[in-house]
């Protein structure tokens, strides 16, 4: 580890936004992993009949007057919905879906966006024009609309939802990377490598790409937040996984009829989305503060 890297790392660790962001994300990952032992709620072994005895039970901190004694005896941190799901357990369990979809969708964005951005920026010419104009066309569509189109064409499933959210993120990654490549390929060490007669592939992956990583890492983190939001949005409009899957957007949509009777059934997943998205955004912003050379030493 070079002195410069150590310096960056120290700045990262000391950054307040990064600290909070990492804490939130780590906490969520931990909670998601421990959902069942923590809350006693097991989504895969859910007994629908006993659960129905605990329908629309208010959270333990809510006004719990007029509850039958056997219902009152059980506490639910975030209440239950009308199928008797423990909302806290269900939402924590749903974190697995949101995080997985978020990460994999961004992985798809990167997998498609990085080659496009590299090729476009490095080779330029007609290839650049072709790729960038195509991306302009894609960007002309509102992202949610585009994602809806993709899901409609591919068919409705968890995987396709991921693909849709991932593909929607491609233009951002590709454009950002292209801009970086355009900057880096002017630098002397790249010209030196070219003068030494290195092949394009070697220059691209050995010299150019590693020096474009910082902004991509920032963008990927922020994209994860967007991906989680978009997933929830698609789940809400019914283009997500099948009903009954504890995906946050879907839970909100399924329980919206309870808004007056059992608001906690809608608010819990809503609050979960806010916190997790906030965590990723804080982390992303912090990373940018530290990694972006233009913001350095201010």
């Amino acid at each position: 580890m070079s002195a410069d890297d150590r310096h960056t790392l120290r700045r990262l660790v000391r950054h307040r936004g990064v600290q909070i962001g990492v804490a939130i994300v780590a906490l969520w990952v931990l909670l998601a992993a421990l959902a069942t032992p923590l809350t006693g709620y097991d989504h895969s072994a859910f007994d629908p009949d006993t659960a129905l005895d605990y329908q629309n039970v208010p959270p333990s901190w809510w006004d719990r007057a007029n509850l039958p004694p056997d219902v009152e005896a059980r506490t639910f941190l975030a209440g239950t919905d009308d199928l008797g799901h423990d909302m806290f357990g269900l939402v924590l369990y749903g974190t697995r879906y949101s995080l997985t979809i978020g990460f994999l969708a961004v992985a798809i964005s990167l997998l498609v966006g990085i080659p496009l951005g590299l090729v476009s920026g490095y080779f330029g010419g007609w290839l650049d024009t072709l790729i960038m104009r195509s991306i302009d066309v894609v960007m002309a569509f509102p992202t949610i609309l585009l994602a809806i189109c993709i899901v409609t064409v591919l068919g409705q499933s968890l995987v396709n939802l991921m693909v849709a959210v991932g593909l929607v993120g491609v233009p951002g990654i590709a454009r950002q990377l292209r801009a970086e490549v355009l900057r880096v390929k002017q630098l002397e060490f790249v010209q030196a490598a070219q003068a030494l007669g290195f092949g394009n592939t070697r220059i691209l992956f050995g010299h150019v790409f590693p020096n474009c990583l910082a902004p991509i890492i920032v963008l990927a983190t922020l994209s994860t937040a967007t991906a989680i939001l978009e997933t929830a949005g698609l789940g809400f409009v019914g283009l997500g996984p099948e009903p009954g899957t504890p995906e946050w957007g879907l839970i909100i949509s399924e329980n919206r009829n309870l808004l007056t009777q059992a608001p906690w059934a809608v608010l819990t997943p809503g609050v979960a989305i806010v916190i997790l998205v906030l965590g990723f955004n804080l982390l992303g912003d912090g990373l940018r503060d530290v990694l972006d050379p233009r913001l350095k030493k201010r």
């Binding site: 937040a225 939001l229 409009v237 955004n281």
Partner: peptide, 22 residues
């Protein structure tokens, strides 16, 4: 923090809007 704010607003809208096809 504008992005964060936007996210919060989006969630608020998401939770509050009447429905997918109303």
């Amino acid at each position: 923090m504008i992005r964060t704010l936007a996210a919060v607003v989006a969630v608020a809208l998401l939770a509050g809007c009447p429905g997918p096809d109303s």
